[in-house]
Simulated scan of single mutants.
Amino acid sequence: MTDDGDHPPFPLLVPEDSTDLDDVRSALRGADAVDDLGTDLAATLAWVVAVPRPRSLAASWELLASVAARDIAAARVLEPHLDALGILDEAAAAGIALDLDASGSWGVFAAEGPGARLEARQDDGTWTLHGTKPWCSLAADLDHALVTAWVDDERRQLFALDLRDSAVTARPGPWHARGLDRVVSAPIDVDAAVAVPVGEPGWYLRRPGFAHGGVGVAACWWGGAMPLRTALAAAARGERADQLARAHLGRADVALWAARAVLVETATVFGAGGSASEGLRAARARAVVADAVEVTLTEAAHALGPSPLVADERHARRVADLQVYVRQHHAERDLARIGGDVATEGGRW
């Protein structure tokens, strides 16, 4: 099954004959029907809310990668929405009773930052949130979010927050991004907004699916880089192509092929029930994919030169979006954490 030439063939990660692809196909047909997918934020959010939920982890990553191949910003909107709904499903499966409206669009705000702190307080059985939460993507546009807040100085707990509450103020910035410029990720200020606890303190980090979300983001990075491989292949077929053009394509192809193999294996292991080292496996997968994306960005820049960066709006936007998005991987700091885990715990493969 091939596309119209604007993005790579589908499927990308899951075999063509997989029965899990029906919902993915339906979601992608909906995406292709959205005018200005990713640039028209309202239309993109309406599509995200209507997306059928994939039935397996592999299909979810397939959907994220395929959407990112179409538009990276659209995948950046879809990924936390699906992650939030998956977390709520995990909570229900764990017997956590939740009295909340799960309709509408969702985000996940779990980042911390210097000078910003969101605290949770309980009074007569009602939880309220107070303070500032950084890096809240699309907070001014979403309906709800799952947010982490400090219960005390040592424990963080997850809460469902209605972003339409007048006690929640989404800041417009600072957001001077050239990539993902439409997906504003700025702080929110919360003044005693009522929130619904989702699990006990620490449950968010301990839950089995915590590692899965991080690799879902990596699937977006990988899918977002695939059209750059397509552009490199077109250049390598051109009349002026030489050995260097083919070498640039080959280097990107090998890196993305290896990253695909890692994503497929990771989805298989996690889908089978995972292992005690899911966190380390997820961190390794993210590192492999991030490296492949950065290799592909470099090879595309070297092979294609400045022309598509200044004359091809879609290519220039894709490169800028991908450069910002992949910085969710913290490079050497994440590698140092992997090294620490391997050094202290053995890090079995």
Rank of each mutant, 00 (worst) to 15 (best):
D191H: 12
A116E: 15
F210T: 10
G38E: 07
A59C: 06
R286F: 05
F109H: 14
E16R: 12
V184D: 02
D99Y: 06
R206N: 11
E119M: 14
P15F: 06
A272Y: 06
W47V: 06
A231W: 08
D4S: 09
P172W: 03
A320G: 08
A177N: 14
A235I: 03
V289S: 01
R260P: 00
L142T: 05
R171G: 08
V196A: 07
D291Y: 08
A225M: 02
G223S: 02
A261H: 12
G340Y: 08
L64Y: 13
R260W: 01
W257N: 11
A94R: 01
A170N: 00
D23Q: 12
R178A: 12
R178Q: 11
D23G: 11
D99A: 15
R171A: 12
A282I: 02
V67E: 06
W222T: 03
G86M: 04
L142W: 04
S137R: 09
A241D: 04
Q328E: 15
D341F: 14
L244T: 15
K133R: 14
A116T: 15
L249K: 00
R333E: 12
D341L: 15
G115E: 07
A170C: 00
V254E: 14
E200W: 08
E239P: 13
T169W: 09
L78E: 07
A46E: 14
G173K: 05
H315K: 07
L249P: 05
A331L: 14
D20Q: 08
P306Q: 04
H144A: 01
L205H: 13
H329A: 00
S277T: 11
V289A: 02
D291K: 08
R156H: 05
R53M: 14
G115S: 07
L263W: 02
W106K: 02
E239H: 13
R333C: 00
D141M: 10
R327A: 14
S307H: 13
P308A: 07
I87S: 04
E332F: 10
T169H: 11
A219G: 03
D141C: 10
H7E: 11
W221R: 00
E16L: 12
G104M: 03
